[in-house]
Every structure is written in structure tokens, then in C-alpha cells.
């Protein structure tokens, strides 16, 4: 067995998986609270990448150092994506809070198409090159051919984000309120929790994570266009389903699992069908184990 190749695939899968996990968290949190597949979440990720590109472009012209650009771009992307996530919820989902299941989902699809076309009109429908913002780390030199510094930043960065999120949800008052709202929104409201605010915050947190994911992956891959959100979105949603939608550790596990599975499948089987693996996993899981790897199946009350 070619161990070098195996490690390369493992590390590559880890990088992919971390990004999937970051986006999956947004899906899972929103689903946990309002039971909506936020179709437009992938577009938030795409907008994060675009915002990052614009900031980097402007600062690049004025000659800022790469690391400063990375930090500023990340901050701006997070701010903007949060704002987009917040506004999107207020416009497209809040008025449909009591409208059944189909309406918000269609609204979400509309929102997703809207944001894609907005970016086409405001920017371009072509691929844009994305500058490499992540500096080379010397200590990674020996393994740089299989695990570069951008991989390193992605894996470490997303791990930190997820750890922070877990602590936030577990130990802060706001986190407790979020968990309560997810369990039973009506009851939480009766107990004085402002559910609308919790929902907004959920969207903001999910969008910030997507923004970071978008920025990091764009810098890693080197080009972006308006369509990147769709594929990333579906894959991240797959990750959320694998881990059991609504569960935060599940989303992380699902993301890593999907990343590794994809990496090995493309490495050992065929790279032509790269995206088919993800879709097949999604379909198979939804059909045979819709509650995910760890979840329990709910019983419908008659």
C-alpha cells in the first residue's frame, strides 16, 4: 500500500471535511431551531468569498501585507455575511413562520436564486481568480507537498471555531436559550425567551461560520464564481444529514466523514464521479437513515 498517497488523501479529506463542517453547522443550527432547510445558506458562503475577494483586492492595491489582508478580509466577510443572513431571515423566512413546511422552503429556494443572480449582476458570472492570502509557514515545509499552510489554517481555524461554538452553546446564557428554543419554541417564548432574537442570532452565527469557510476555501482553491455556493451548500447539507440534522457535534462529524469519504473515493475509485459520491451518500442516508449516524427516528403522533 502506498502510505504517502493514503496520508495525502486523509489530509486532503480533513481539509475538505473541515470546510463542510463549518457550513454544515449553519444548516444544522437553523434546522434545529425553525425546521427549515435554509437553501440559501450556500449562497451566504459564496458571498463571504466574494466579499473577501473585494476586500483583498482593494487592500492589495494599497499594498497591505498578506496577513493583515487575511485578517481584515475575514472580519469584513464575517460582518457582511452576518448582515446578509440576518436580513435574509427577516425578509424571506420570518413572515412565513406559521405557513406550513412547503412555503418557507420555496421561499428559501427563491432566496438562493436571488442571491446568485444578485452576484451575477453586481459582479460577474465568470470565474474570478482569488489571491493566496495565507502565508507559507516554514514549519510545514517537510510535508508541504501534501499538507500546505492553507490546509493547516483551514483545519486549525475551523477546529477553533467549532470549539468556541460548542462552548458558547453549552455554557452561555444565550446558548442555553438557543437550546431551549430548539427543543420547544412556544414553551421557550412563554418562559420569556425572545424567540425572534434567538432565531436572528442563529442565522448570524451560522452565516459567520459560512463566511469564514468561504474565505478560507476560496484562498485555498484560488478561484470563485457565483455557483460555488450551490455545490458546497448541498454537500454541507449532506454532512449535516449524515451527522443527524439538528445536532451540532453531528454536523462536525458528518462534515469530516463526508470530506474523508469523498477524498478516498476520488483517490481510489475515480475522480470523474467526485460529486456523485456526495449526492449518492445524501440520497442513501436520507432514505435509509434520515436521522443520521447518531440520531433516533421520531415517531409521528396520530
Amino acid at each position: 500500500m502506498d502510505w504517502d498517497y493514503f496520508f495525502e488523501l486523509t489530509l486532503g479529506g480533513l481539509t475538505r471535511g473541515s470546510i463542510y463542517a463549518m457550513i454544515a453547522l449553519g444548516y444544522t443550527m437553523v434546522y434545529g431551531i425553525i425546521e427549515l432547510i435554509n437553501f440559501a445558506h450556500g449562497e451566504i458562503y459564496m458571498i463571504g468569498a466574494f466579499t473577501g475577494l473585494l476586500v483583498a483586492g482593494v487592500l492589495g492595491v494599497y499594498g497591505f501585507p498578506a496577513l493583515a489582508i487575511l485578517v481584515i478580509a475575514a472580519v469584513v466577510a464575517v460582518i457582511y455575511c452576518s448582515a446578509y443572513g440576518y436580513t435574509m431571515e427577516k425578509i424571506a423566512y420570518k413572515p412565513l413562520r406559521n405557513a406550513g413546511r412547503l412555503s418557507p422552503l420555496i421561499s428559501a429556494i427563491g432566496m438562493s436564486l436571488f442571491l446568485q443572480n444578485y452576484v451575477i449582476l453586481a459582479q460577474t458570472s465568470d470565474f474570478l481568480p482569488f489571491p493566496a492570502l495565507i502565508p507559507e509557514f516554514e514549519f510545514l515545509d517537510p510535508i508541504a507537498h501534501i499538507f500546505g499552510s492553507s490546509d493547516f489554517v483551514i483545519v486549525v481555524g475551523s477546529a477553533l471555531c467549532m470549539a468556541a461554538l460548542t462552548l458558547f452553546i453549552k455554557y452561555t446564557k444565550m446558548g442555553k436559550a438557543m437550546r431551549a428554543t430548539a427543543q420547544n419554541r412556544k414553551m421557550a417564548m412563554l418562559l420569556g425567551i425572545d424567540a425572534d432574537r434567538i432565531i436572528s442570532i442563529t442565522f448570524i452565527i451560522g452565516s459567520s461560520l459560512a463566511a469564514l469557510g468561504g474565505l478560507l476555501i476560496a484562498s485555498h482553491v484560488g478561484q470563485i464564481n457565483f455557483m460555488i455556493g450551490f455545490l458546497a451548500g448541498v454537500k454541507a447539507f449532506t454532512a449535516a444529514v449524515l451527522g443527524g440534522i439538528g445536532s451540532i457535534p453531528g454536523a462536525v462529524l458528518g462534515g469530516l466523514f463526508l470530506g474523508l469519504a469523498e477524498s478516498f473515493a476520488t483517490g481510489y475509485i475515480s475522480s470523474d464521479y467526485e460529486d456523485v459520491f456526495a449526492f449518492t451518500l445524501l440520497v442513501v442516508f436520507l432514505i435509509f437513515r434520515p436521522s443520521g449516524i447518531m440520531g433516533k427516528a421520531p415517531v409521528e403522533k396520530v
Binding site: L53, L54, G57, V58, V61, A122
Partner: peptide, 14 residues
């Protein structure tokens, strides 16, 4: 950002 700024990352113009 999206509506106002347009950068050209190759020629470095804004």
C-alpha cells in the same frame, strides 16, 4: 461591497 466595488485582481485596479 458587492454593488460598488469591483476589483481586477490581475491588473490590480479598483
Amino acid at each position: 461591497p458587492l454593488m460598488v466595488v469591483r476589483v481586477n485582481t490581475i491588473e490590480h485596479t479598483v
